[in-house]
Design a protein around this nucleic acid. Structure first.
Length: 771
DNA sequence: GAGGACACTTAGCAAGATGCGT
DNA sequence: ACGCATCTTGCTAAGTGTCCTC
């Protein structure tokens, strides 16, 4: 470890030196050793899972001030080469990165009902603010122009509609029979919030009323015949200790109950819940035998599965009742669906990846932990009898209804509205509008950061290279995280030297950077990308005289980067690049893949795309869409574990294909003989027989094609999750426009939940929409 | 400018619901 | 009608980014 540090300038022109305090290094050293065992375990674990040959990452970070040499003498002659490169890049990653399966359908909660239910909400006089002022802060295109002029009319009309609705609700009572009709009507009456003006000044609502959260069911003690054993002897636990023990017992099948960190954290927290006698007696987790408890829970879940239809229905009805009672709120005259009205039940914390806090006890949340947010003039939610809320506040500058502080990280959890709600939808729409604004100035910004690669100042170069990664590779910003509190993951700004490797030349390509790090959710990011020479030289510079666990961009953090971005464009942050690049990629890929010619992709022997005019072929179109979606998912590194049943289901599909093929050749033979027959007989009957056979062949051929498309799609999708990008990064108007253009029903692309979330886009996008 | 509190979006997994072939 | 595969939904962790204080 080098401690030879002295200078402190921010210029890129001197000899490269680090200035780092020795103390800092010593601490680092100690910590590193402490971490070693942990890491070894990580490794083992990883190889067990077979998902990573990932190298040993250190947990340490630090900031160094150094003096660096400007040794980048390269000239830049890329002009519009850049665009091509990007394109190549994308195709590349498509090739080498993992292939995939079918869409995994991410979603959000159920449909929402607009009609208030019987025990109708108390609605205050001043809650009728229908018309809102325009938000002046941004987004010229946020609102379709015509709406501005029509707004008043619409608002009035809506008011009228609502009155009608209110009347309807009254004579609703018990008419279960025409539920279908009603559902239809509801659809027609869906509130088009996107045709209204938005609030100004951060006001999120004027009126908010809800019923509060649903608490986790209380703990039910185990029957007395289910025993816990310590050191081979039955041991009666106190209720508190028993509850925590059951959390562990339930997880016994999971591999992580064998992990040291998990066990240690669990045992420590468990002991806190024990009585002093228990504490004295139970001192070694290894001597604890939870197997009887485990068996009991297993049996219970079996029993649940084997329940009669009536019992299942009963549970369903109860859930529905809860949903109706607690699952909705009134926000500004509209009944809106709440996303997560249930409080998270207690249990053992299991973070993602190698989380230092795995196994800790996640406390039960009580009413006195809960903060309620609602209108002053609303009917406040009641705390359960004999309890009190921690606080009831009336903050209409925020969107949450309920919050509490969680005990593992000390972070705040919220109950908020469903994605189909106005408040979420508006924000979502706005997000895409910001990304569209970026589209207009992205060339300027790209030119700018290229210029900055040559800057005299180290911090500017670092900023420019980081931004290049964020733009080109859709990396996340990479906020700093508190060490030891979470799994060791990074994003762009927090990349460390150990996360990249530089190859001046490899596999016939120049200036290749190999990325290998764990990103959000400890998902591995691995990519080998050729970069521009100047970037490469800069990276060499940044890495000079650094330890593997030093920050690659030691003069940069997300706040600096975002401040810079803010200056380049109003509302621009690192995250916007991900949205922009995802959406623009989808649009480009859809154009390319759907046009017909480019579908003759020889690497993907798919007859479907080769054969016939695309407009006649919906499955092929959907495949094209999924591929475009997939390109984005790959760009954003949205991975998933291959489904457990993948191999099997692939086999099943192949069996089906084989069977279909056999069927096809049989049908063809029959056709042939029918033809021969017709030639000899020359009568109507045999002619007809030929026609029938022809049709049969055609039909079977179509079926076969469909199966093959399905197989291709699924294979390609094996380890790619399409849902995340679909739900969070792709401007839904692109998809809607594509559907309209090619006559594909939107239902083929978006399921019900997704259609609800994207109702605004489905309503407003025409077939010529351009992102 | 560092650090923490806060609000809100993005993320993958798995349980539960649905659908499909037999 | 049943059993399995797939799709949907719920769950909640883990990010981003802003604002405030010192």
């Amino acid at each position: 470890m080098s401690g030879d540090h002295s200078h402190n300038e921010d210029q890129v022109d001197g000899g490269s030196r680090f200035s780092d305090s020795h103390k800092h290094h010593k601490d680092k050293f100690k910590k590193e050793h402490k971490q070693k065992d942990l890491r070894k375990e990580k490794e083992r674990d990883k190889s067990k899972h077979g998902n990573s040959d990932h190298k040993d990452f250190s947990d340490k970070k630090h900031k160094d001030k150094e003096k660096m040499k400007h040794k980048d003498g390269s000239t830049d002659k890329y002009k519009d080469k850049y665009k091509e490169k990007r394109k190549e890049e994308k195709i590349k990653s498509f090739d080498y990165k993992v292939k995939l399966e079918k869409e995994n359908g991410f979603a959000s909660p159920l449909h929402m009902k607009l009609e208030p239910d019987e025990d109708s909400y108390h609605c205050p006089k001043n809650a009728k603010t229908l018309k809102r002022e325009r938000d002046d802060d941004n987004d010229y295109e946020f609102k379709p122009k015509k709406i501005k002029t029509e707004n008043e009319k619409k608002a009035k009309k809506r008011k009228l509609d609502e009155n009608i609705k209110a009347v309807k609700t009254k004579n609703k009572k018990g008419d279960v029979a025409d539920g279908k009709k009603k559902a239809k009507k509801e659809q027609e009456e869906k509130w088009k919030w996107w045709e209204e003006e938005r609030y100004t000044d951060g006001v999120k609502w004027k009126f908010l009323e809800h019923k509060g959260p649903v608490f986790a069911p209380p703990y039910e003690p185990l029957p007395s015949n289910v025993k816990f054993y310590y050191d081979g002897k039955a041991f009666m636990l106190s209720a508190g200790a028993e509850e925590v023990a059951t959390f562990f017992a339930k997880m016994l099948d999971h591999e992580y109950t064998t992990k040291d960190v998990f066990r240690k954290n669990f045992f420590k927290d468990w002991r806190k819940e024990m009585t002093s006698e228990e504490k004295a007696k139970i001192t070694d987790l290894k001597k604890c035998d939870f197997s009887e408890m485990h068996q009991y829970f297993k049996a219970q879940s079996e029993a649940r599965k084997a329940m009669s239809k009536e019992e299942k229905l009963k549970i369903k009805e109860e859930n529905e009742r809860l949903l109706q009672q607690y699952g909705f709120c009134i926000m500004d005259n509209h009944k809106e669906r709440i996303a997560n009205f249930r409080i998270e039940p207690p249990g053992l914390f299991r973070g993602r990846g190698d989380h230092p806090k795995m196994g800790m006890l996640k406390r039960r949340i009580r009413p006195q932990d809960i903060i309620i947010n609602c209108s002053k003039d609303s009917k406040y939610p009641e705390p359960p009898p004999g309890t009190k809320w921690k606080e009831v506040r009336h903050d209409n500058k925020v969107t949450w209804l309920v919050s509490w502080t969680e005990n593992i990280q000390g972070s705040i959890k919220y109950i908020m509205l469903n994605p189909s709600s106005r408040i979420k939808g508006e924000k979502d729409w706005q997000k895409y509008e910001t990304a569209r604004r970026l589209k207009k100035c992205v060339d300027r910004i790209r030119n700018q950061y290229r210029e900055d690669w040559k800057s005299k100042e180290m911090r500017i170069r670092q900023r420019a290279v980081a931004l290049y990664f964020i733009d080109k590779l859709a990396l996340r910003a990479g906020n700093e995280k508190e060490e030891g509190e979470t799994a060791d993951t990074v994003g762009c700004c927090s990349l460390r030297v150990e996360h990249i490797k530089l190859y001046p030349e490899i596999d016939g390509q120049e200036y290749v950077v190999e990325f290998d790090f764990l990103g959000k959710d400890s998902i591995r990011y691995y990519n080998k990308v050729p970069v521009e020479k100047r970037v490469f030289k800069n990276l060499q510079l940044f890495m000079e005289n650094k330890e593997p666990d030093d920050d690659l961009f030691d003069r940069l953090n997300t706040s600096i980067l975002n401040k810079h971005l803010q200056e380049l464009m109003d509302g621009l942050t690192a995250k916007v690049f991900r949205t922009y690049n995802a959406s623009i990629t989808l649009q480009a890929q859809l154009k390319e893949l759907t046009s017909g010619t480019s579908l003759h992709d020889t690497t993907l022997h798919c007859r479907a795309v080769i054969k016939g005019p695309p407009e006649e072929n919906i499955p092929a179109k959907i495949l094209s869409y999924n591929r475009a979606n997939r390109a984005v998912a790959i760009l954003c590194n949205h991975q998933r574990a291959p489904p457990k049943t993948f191999e099997k289901s692939m086999q099943n599909l192949q069996t089906k294909i084989d069977a279909k093929k056999a069927q096809l050749s049989a049908a063809k033979r029959e056709l042939k003989s029918a033809k021969a027959d017709a030639k000899v007989r020359r009568d109507e009957k045999s002619k007809k027989a030929v026609e029938a056979k022809k049709k049969a062949v055609q039909r079977i051929d179509d079926q076969l094609m469909k199966l093959e498309v399905q197989a291709t799609d699924r294979e390609e999708n094996k380890q790619i999750a399409l849902g995340t990008s679909k739900l969070n990064y792709l401007d839904p108007r692109i998809s809607v426009a594509w559907c309209k253009k090619w006559g594909i029903p939107v239902e083929k692309i978006y399921n019900k939940t997704q259609r609800e979330k994207f109702a605004w886009a489905i309503d407003m996008a025409d077939d010529d929409y351009e992102f």
